[in-house]
Design a protein around this nucleic acid. Sequence first.
DNA 1: GTAGGTGCAAAATCTTTGCATGGTA
DNA 2: TACCATGCAAAGATTTTGCACCTAC
Lengths: 137, 137
Amino acid sequence: MNELSRYERQIKQAGLRLTAPRRIILRILEQSGDHPDAAEIFQRAAKMDARISLATVYRTMKVLEETGAVERHAFQGGPARFEQADREHHDHLIDIETGAVVEFTSPRIEELQRAIAEELGYEIVDHRLELYGRKMT
Amino acid sequence: MNELSRYERQIKQAGLRLTAPRRIILRILEQSGDHPDAAEIFQRAAKMDARISLATVYRTMKVLEETGAVERHAFQGGPARFEQADREHHDHLIDIETGAVVEFTSPRIEELQRAIAEELGYEIVDHRLELYGRKMT
DNA sequence: GTAGGTGCAAAATCTTTGCATGGTA
DNA sequence: TACCATGCAAAGATTTTGCACCTAC
């Protein structure tokens, strides 16, 4: 048992068991370029192993979030959507007409955030920046 | 019937009826310095008129949001929380230990957001910036 | 073998909606 | 009076949980 992916190692290092459902869900997250919600992850997982349950998807997402392997987003009130967290940090611009998600980064905004929090007496633990926009023609 | 508040006028100008439940909910929002969710608004409203239903609170919040009288926030996955929208725009820093919400503004961040969206070919319709922090000692 | 994980179904939480009734303009 | 709004209860949508069985370590 040597061919462990980055994620699989992350699971084991957290003292968690590497089960079949977890392997499948991790593979789906690796292959997903989008930001699927629990139901979508469940559907994709069911194609690989029909025995997986939605409850396991939810439990796995919670565990993966706690180990830092995935990020949970709650865009505008729908179901939570997930993405892997190994890449560089980025924020999101959501196309209000198509629902498409464009990723971007801004070190300057990050720095301003840190400075603002510091001024208010806080240390930033997490943050969320989402832009909702319409494509210009 | 002349003593209409800013909000009450906003309701009428939108062609909506100024009913007792709406008056009460509007008064609660005016008096609230915090960011209550629908259940909290309902509880506060019940003290003024026990006949008000939670369904009406939800329906009223939707209407008020559409008329631009209130803003809806979906902080980290809990119930939606509301605040009046007549004040100057601001963002939120949420204390992860107490749940307290600190408001702040940053014109420089706003401008950077606009520039980023423009670069990506988008016009910003709305945005959300939330910092989650821990109080420094 | 044992603690932790899973599947299933029930429940919890948050929000919306159908329908008969009531109140505003 | 004509609609819009309300209350109630039921249904929807999303997420969590109790419990018996299973399986990775």
